[in-house]
Amino acid sequence: MDAIFLQFLNGLDKGGAYALIALGLTLVFGTLGVVNFAHGALFMLGAFCAVTLRKILTMQKVVLDEENLTAWGTPTEIRTTYVETWFGDFGTQLVNYSVPLAILLAIPVMLVVGVVMERGLIKHFYRRPHAEQILVTFGLAIVLQEIIKHYFGANPIPQPMPSNLAGAADIGVMMGMDPNIIVYPWWRLVYFAFSVIVIGAVFAFLQFTTFGMVVRAGMADRETVGLIGIDIDKRFTAMFGLAAVVAGVAGVMYTPLLPPDYHLGMDFLVLTFVVVVVGGMGSLPGAVLAGFMLGILQSFASMTEIKAIIPGIDQIIIYLVAVIILLVRPRGLLGRKGVMES
């Protein structure tokens, strides 16, 4: 029982990441009808926003101390971080919380990236076949990841989480069990909570604001909304920006769990595509549901007991589910009837 609960928890953070990326992917597909293979790259760009912010915050001033020589006879270097000299303890805290703070950097950056991407390239592909959309966004993804590789190198760059969230929570005790049965890293819980909040915010935005209502109307019937005199294209562009922001902040918060490198986006992209297909192309609740479901499923499949029965199942479970879903129920779990069903 405990083991099962633990695996369930283990799946939540990865599921959260899948859900967030899949949400953006679905949003773009639902509004603009574009299959965006560069969406994983946006996740990766978000992660590198965190890397950049930390680099800026930890910039150091090097003073050579001629009095004290090191064992090699060179002057000792005294390194002081700028922020710490300027702000003292507050500066130390800034560095400590660099990952969550990076969200503030990622939001404007990703918004700009998203809007530029949509206006600059993707808008020319609305009326072209899906195959060409896939191809051009695939090319774009390569370009983005290679630019990142050029500036940040090919190796993963670990990002520490805030020190007071670095430990593990003893959830078992909270639930009245003995200590040390269910121990779970704090940051994963934070990531799960964060993904739930972001998903909730996106849904609330679509459901309760006029802007969101217009967008939903546009998703249902683009032409009629256009005929009423609403510039639906502008709103859809904004939705692309929103999708980019969601993917970006998802990437920022994921950095302590997985050191980002330039092909992080590609690794996640294939999986999220599968998630979107399982959830139902164009269905937002479907994307979220399938994201968490597949995350949890993957975590269960990596249990040693299950791997003993079916070796290698943890590597392929997600793809296997996708194949079964596509063959049995092609519109996905919550997909609308007739959407891409042929």
Partner: peptide, 11 residues
């Protein structure tokens, strides 16, 4: 269509 692409990708 795109489903075919994703299926082959998955395999």
């Amino acid at each position: 269509g795109i489903y075919f692409s994703i299926l082959t990708l998955a395999f």
